[in-house]
Design a protein around this nucleic acid. Structure first.
Lengths: 188, 188
DNA sequence: TTCCTTTTTTGACAATTGTCAAAAGAAAGC
DNA sequence: GCTTTCTTTTGACAATTGTCAAAAAAGGAA
């Protein structure tokens, strides 16, 4: 749980009371490789913090293909955001790509904590904002950069992805076919 | 200011005290068509609510082209999000596309209100979350849909954009060239 | 109205990326 | 070690989209 506390403190420090209440509400989750944390069609009731391992978010496209649009690594917050926020079934699956250790908190427990600890709600607001900025950057890249540029950007900003994730999933994440990504890599 | 109050209440009701404090902190801004609300290289110090009119967010790409990635209409919240949150200069310009009326609040004033009114911070957290979901949907479309599909989706979800915005800017927003969009339109 | 400016469309061609199929390479199990 | 399975690369070709240039259409101002 130290990793979570350290991660939190980089966003916004919270009171000891808030941290203690939060700690009590957390459940430890250990999953082997290729297990599912969230399945499509279900309401996602938990927000997770990933202490160790890695995961991907994907959905099954109409044509039957898996579409990976998201990876999670150590110290990332993980949930099926749309489902968790809207309380409706989501279309996304979240799957471990390695043996993983997470800490989870339920939607209800989190909202109760918000009522009791204003600083905890502030923390979450600030984290949300930072994740929004990241998403915005990704959208910009997707909208205005070529496949090659997106790959080179990934090499710079997240080289660890290349070492931990199969190429086909990275290609999907970049919005290109696996063959195109393979050709881009051979021409650098 | 009624429009703002109504808009807020659809996200999360706030106390009368919070609303009164917020009202006092707001400044009315009226801008003619083609005026700038935010300029690149500046720190954006205000969050706006658009009561009447429409705006676009864009930046100047390396090759000299304007890249439009965002439109705002009535009842939208408007800011240079990265700059407003991180307190650093942004690369984006925000420009009116029609005569517009907005209400603005400064970063400092908003954060002071957060300290005094927990429910106001909750409101902003919830609004942020809804905007995050919208952004996520846009990223999905950009990543996994063809130009034609993205245009048809825009026709369904935001037909008003077509009637108020020049084609070149819509094309940029969809991540395609104006010529391609023109051809897509002629083939429907 | 007429002129001038901006916006949209069209044509020709080039560049990028996708698809299908097969081969090569790497990893995991026995 | 040897299979078996999964992952990555390569080839050939098709489809999509971009670029440049010019024409057509639409909108504003005098």
């Amino acid at each position: 749980m130290n990793a979570l506390h350290h991660c939190i403190s980089q966003y916004h420090p919270i009171s000891i009371a808030a941290w203690e209440a939060l700690s009590k509400a957390l459940t430890r989750v250990e999953l082997p490789k290729n297990a599912f944390l969230v399945r499509e069609g279900m309401v996602c009731n938990k927000l997770y913090f990933l202490e160790q391992g890695c995961l991907r978010g994907y959905y099954n496209n109409l044509d039957g293909k898996e579409v990976t649009y998201w990876f999670g690594f150590e110290n990332n917050f993980i949930t099926s955001f749309y489902s968790f926020i809207s309380r409706k079934p989501g279309i996304e699956n979240i799957q471990t790509l390695e043996d993983s250790t997470l800490w989870g908190i339920s939607f209800d427990a989190l909202n109760q904590l918000f009522d009791q600890h204003h600083d905890l709600e502030r923390l979450v607001r600030i984290i949300n904002e930072q994740y929004y900025i990241r998403l915005e950057e990704r959208l910009m890249a997707m909208q205005f950069k070529t496949a090659r540029e997106r790959y080179e950007q990934l090499l710079e900003t997240s080289p660890h992805i290349l070492q931990r994730i199969p190429l086909g999933q990275i290609a999907s994440y970049l919005g290109i076919s696996q063959e195109t990504l393979s050709r881009i890599r051979s021409q650098v």
